[in-house]
């Protein structure tokens, strides 16, 4: 418990000593983003460059523990539509990948396609995303989706630490053991850096870190 408290304090200090962002797959024009995500089933690292706020292109590496599958791909993210409202913003993105899928000694070409949408005010947040992965053989053929809700315990102004308490539900219909996973998490962000830390319903750690340059 004490160790958890120290880790949490260290993370808060880390977040306040640098700066943070939002989890969107496209950055500002000319911006680079490094996304490192870990959850109950997946570890991934994604580096992308955004020529404009409308799209980004980058390299993504993923490891799926269930099935022991490694994916390496080129990912293109497109902002299809943004809704700018006086006190809210909504976005709809298309994410597409093409690359190599490896399981045991099988190497196959794979592609994936997904939609991501979010809507947020300064107090409330909701996002939904899905992904369908398919290789040209039988290495991978899965569908995944998740929904995330959040509430900010306080409304922070610019250059302050923004905190969110969130619930995430992952639905993986092709999984043998974990078809639905619920995760409680906290999101902290300030400036161009974001941190998410949570615990899943099957007692695994969620740890996401995003940094924009």
């Amino acid at each position: 418990m004490r160790l958890l408290f120290i880790i949490l304090l260290s993370l808060i200090y880390y977040q306040s000593s640098i700066s943070i962002s939002s989890a969107r797959p496209v950055s500002y024009g000319g911006g680079w983003t490094l996304m490192q995500k870990n959850n109950h089933n997946k570890n991934s690292i994604h580096l992308h460059y955004s020529p404009s706020y409308k799209y980004s292109i980058g390299y993504k590496s993923e490891y799926l523990r269930e099935g022991n599958i490694s994916l390496n791909s080129l990912q293109l993210n497109n902002l299809i539509k943004r809704w700018n409202l006086p006190a809210a913003q909504g976005n709809l993105y298309l994410k597409s990948n093409i690359g190599n899928a490896t399981k045991s000694k099988n190497n196959e070409i794979y592609s994936s396609l997904g939609l991501a949408t979010d809507f947020e005010t300064r107090r409330y947040f909701i996002s939904y995303q899905n992904n369908y992965y398919k290789s040209d053989g039988d290495v991978i053929n899965i569908f995944q989706q998740n929904i995330q809700f959040g509430i900010a315990p306080y409304v922070a102004n610019y250059n302050n630490i923004h905190s969110w308490i969130m619930v995430r539900i992952d639905h993986e219909p092709d999984s043998d053991d974990n078809k639905i996973i619920k995760t409680g998490l906290i999101r902290l962000f300030k400036g161009v850096n974001l941190l998410e830390l949570g615990i899943t319903s099957n007692k695994k750690l969620l740890f996401n870190l995003i940094k924009r340059f």
Binding site: Y53, A88, Q89, E120, H162, K190
Partner: peptide, 12 residues
């Protein structure tokens, strides 16, 4: 400005 609801919006 419309859509100015988050830290990252401000950074942008």
């Amino acid at each position: 400005v419309n859509g100015l609801v988050c830290e990252f919006c401000a950074v942008t």
